[in-house]
Design a protein around this nucleic acid. Structure first.
Lengths: 343, 343
DNA sequence: TTGTATGCGTTATCAC
DNA sequence: GTGATAACGCATACAA
């Protein structure tokens, strides 16, 4: 493999009969350098096709202009959109992104964090895995002096920058919409309650019912129904009740809502007239089903950009501990056919 | 920000009254170390919670155990799946992944490559952007002695490792299926012909027609219909022909097939009886539409794993130029309702 | 088997 | 404003 020797600042120095330190100063736009020599250095650097060796620079500086991202799964629409948003914003600032997936496992999440710390990333951006109840590994990140931003699924007790959706509000609006459409027995498919997002969505559900003086019927609240299969199973159970629900809010995801729809189809139950269905996340497929599914858009790409901007505004080059701050993005209810009962 | 001083090999050396070089050797499992001292070093390293400074190591070694990935868009199902597959395999070997998106722009692609080269990645994995006709920037990668793996959309003329789908075969099977279902006037929506994948799919289409002695009708071949909107426009044009097609093969993507389906619905044309529709990529939504869409699965996650394994088998620690090699993954035709004319 | 010395390429801290 | 020198932490050629 032919590896041409790379040009270093010494090569430039030699050529100009000055020292490497002057070259370095010139390249870094230091103000203690003669304008003339600076220009000369820049010119010959360009001529020789000099590229700064970031490995050396990183070692010397202790910074890497790299941001580590940990998500449960890269190939989930929401997360890949957030990553795309982050990439877009960080790229412009010359930052790199190292991506890891935790696969919803606490062990893997810890290993990801360790890897990123070893790589001396300047900041870690994370959405925690469902298994992560104990967040000591995140606390550790802060203790080591590495910046940390949490998004979507966050550890509430950790004082960090957070970018989240206003899940409670969105959920409340969703259920309110169902009530206004005339649905009276509204079931909730809830996700693992150790995750903040699912707790908040449940709270929103409860608040909406309360606002309209509707009772909370415990048999209509189904735990842990956050996949298509679990959503389908929950629906079979719900629809076989003596008094089945007339609407199901799959607060966990559109996939779970899809499970609901499948079962409704199989049981020849009409949507939305006999059963209203509402999902979460605005997955691309929700507008393609028959009927299309009412859902909640989370502005995921935008979320990624917000995360990146937050880093640059609050953290870049800051040595101090950043004051915790929560940015809440208001999701939007997308009303489609699956809940349009009234006309 | 409290930054505890990190433990270095010197700290370990001092504690054990040996030199840093011995510590280094012990940690790197060199065979010129006394077993006893090696164990001692490992033990105290663990005690002191020593972590190798990869920045320093990277500088010294000129390698980074990092692989750079360049894709047109991170948040496209196919690509995020490939990335997930790569991550899965590389993670286990202790490698990191730096991700860039070219946004289908040649300029951005070049910048991505430069960034990755500056980061001294050990290998670049790329699927080229649609704009990239001239591949001198990739040739440059090879000239600099950096390993390169192309996948899916590849520059044929560059002699590198390549992981691709057998697009021609898949396309031929798809069209054959249409013919066997009784479709006689089969239209092709083709993508930009500078990309190998779209050329191959066209070839497959032509071969299938030839096999059955069907004529190639040029007005049924529509250039550049590779988005939902372009697919829809093409369909409107096709269906208003004096002799419209009875099937449309959207060889570019399922999105374009979706455009076809939308127009068919709008024009009250029955699918599959009056019009067969066939897509490409097995996007999740294809099984959710009404009717569900026949398409081609590319085994994208598996493709990612194949890429990673290829790197480890052929390239890791190799200083020599790797002999070019093409791994072709056979895609699978997924027959669904949109082409099931016969019963 | 171990210690000594040196370099990877930068940047920072001194002097001058 | 510029030069000399050290240091970031590790790994290796060479000597012992």
């Amino acid at each position: 493999m032919k590896t041409k020797k790379r040009i270093t600042i010494y090569d430039i120095a030699e050529k100009l009969n000055i020292t490497a330190s002057s070259v370095s100063r010139a390249l870094n736009n230091s103000n203690h350098v003669n304008e003339a020599t600076k220009n000369l250095v820049l010119k010959t650097a360009a001529e020789l096709n000099y590229k700064r060796n970031v490995l050396a620079s990183n070692l010397r500086m202790g910074k890497t202009k790299t941001i580590g991202v940990v998500v449960p799964r890269i190939n989930q629409n929401f997360f890949s959109n957030v990553i795309a948003g982050i990439e877009d914003a960080t790229y412009q600032k010359g930052y790199n992104l190292i991506i890891c997936q935790s696969n919803e496992s606490r062990d893997k999440e810890i290993k990801c964090i360790n890897t990123l710390m070893n790589q001396h990333v300047d900041c870690i951006v994370i959405s925690v895995s469902v298994e992560s109840d104990d967040h000591s590994h995140l606390k550790n990140v802060l203790d080591q002096g590495v910046q940390l931003i949490q998004f979507d699924r966050v550890a509430d007790e950790l004082e960090t920058l957070k970018v989240i959706n206003d899940n409670e509000q969105a959920s409340m609006e969703a259920v309110t919409h169902l009530i206004e459409q005339g649905y009276k027995r509204i079931a909730l498919l809830e996700g693992p309650q150790n995750l903040n997002i699912f707790r908040q969505r449940k709270t929103g559900y409860l608040k909406a019912l309360k606002n309209f003086n509707l009772p909370v019927i415990s048999e209509l609240v189904i735990e842990n129904a956050w996949t298509k299969e679990l959503g389908a199973a929950a629906t079979r159970k719900l629809l076989s009740l003596p008094e089945p629900p007339d609407a199901i809010f799959a607060s966990t995801s559109d996939f779970s809502a899809l499970g609901v729809l499948d079962v409704a189809h199989a049981m020849h139950i009409k949507v939305p007239s006999e059963l209203g269905i509402l999902g979460y996340a605005n997955e691309p497929f929700t507008e393609l089903t028959t009927p299309s599914i009412t859902t909640i858009d989370q502005f995921s790409v935008n979320m990624g950009k917000t995360i990146a901007n937050l880093y640059f505004e609050e953290m870049e080059n800051k040595e101090v501990v950043v004051t915790p701050k929560v940015i809440s993005i208001k999701p939007e209810l997308i009303i489609r056919a699956s809940t349009r009962k009234k006309r």
